[in-house]
Write a protein that binds this DNA or RNA. Structure first.
Lengths: 140, 140
DNA sequence: GTACAACTTAGAGTATGCTCTAAGTCAAGC
DNA sequence: GCTTGACTTAGAGCATACTCTAAGTTGTAC
């Protein structure tokens, strides 16, 4: 059970490769995030390189916060072929805008946290005897 | 019920100001993310400017993905006074590193999505008759 | 004095996304 | 021929974080 014909992978191999658990891989298939995967004669899943590519992109969408139902919509559009290209692109562009907004917010909040860290550092320095420049007050 | 003495705010005013729902404000207090808020004679909450400042920072921590239990830990340390400064700072620095990692991942995934969008754009252009440069293949 | 709106509580319910369990099949190695 | 390990299924369970409900109190406005 090591070298399969073609480049077909077992569910465990795909789990190792993608970082998704075998549970999650079956779950994603069940809810339609990935189309029915081919089976070996014994009923075991055999993932094609295309399946793995899709899973990689799916992971990218999920880890950037696209909700499962939207990934599912995207997957459905994909199955409907080329006539859905524009709609798929629109979906991705909406998501892209969301990510860019998230990045801006995350960056701004990061600055606030860095500022607080600097403030704490100053308080600690003062507590251990040193005298320092004063950052404008930020409590808590 | 408009102008209260001092700068104390009702729960609704704080909700409007912070964007957290009144439900969430009570929930946060119940689970210890914010210490017991002062009460008016009738038992209604009266939020001080300090409470609001803490809620703002709390929001910053939560929206950057710090888990509730960790925010709670931070809140507890804060209540224990100055001797917890170093620990609080350590907590924030760990969180900061997490945010920076998230930013890197988000940025990388954004690039992949932008690339896919560009690929779709090219396919669409080709479909409507135009001939274009070929981006190296990315399916799905 | 009664309607109304804003608040109070404890605790139940919901949304999202997995994650795990139980029972069973199957092929390979000893 | 029996153990072992990887797989299969349906469906239950769990983690996180709210979000809402029901029943009750209070204070002002008419």
């Amino acid at each position: 059970m090591d070298q399969l014909t073609d480049d077909l992978l077992t569910i465990q191999q795909v789990a190792d490769k993608t970082g998704l658990s075998t549970h999650t891989l079956r779950y994603y298939e069940k809810i339609g995030l990935i189309q029915a995967v081919d089976r070996a004669d014994n009923g075991h899943r055999r993932y094609s390189p295309g399946d793995v590519g899709w899973l990689d992109f799916l992971k990218c969408l999920r880890s950037t916060g696209m909700p499962v139902r939207e990934v599912k919509r995207y997957a459905e559009l994909y199955e409907d072929g080329d006539q859905t290209l524009a709609e798929r692109r629109a979906l991705l562009e909406t998501h892209r805008a969301r990510i860019e907004a998230d990045l801006r917010e995350l960056t701004a909040n990061l600055e606030a946290i860095k500022y607080k860290i600097a403030y704490y550092r100053e308080l600690e320095a003062r507590a251990t005897g040193g005298e320092a420049e004063t950052l404008s007050a930020v409590s808590n």
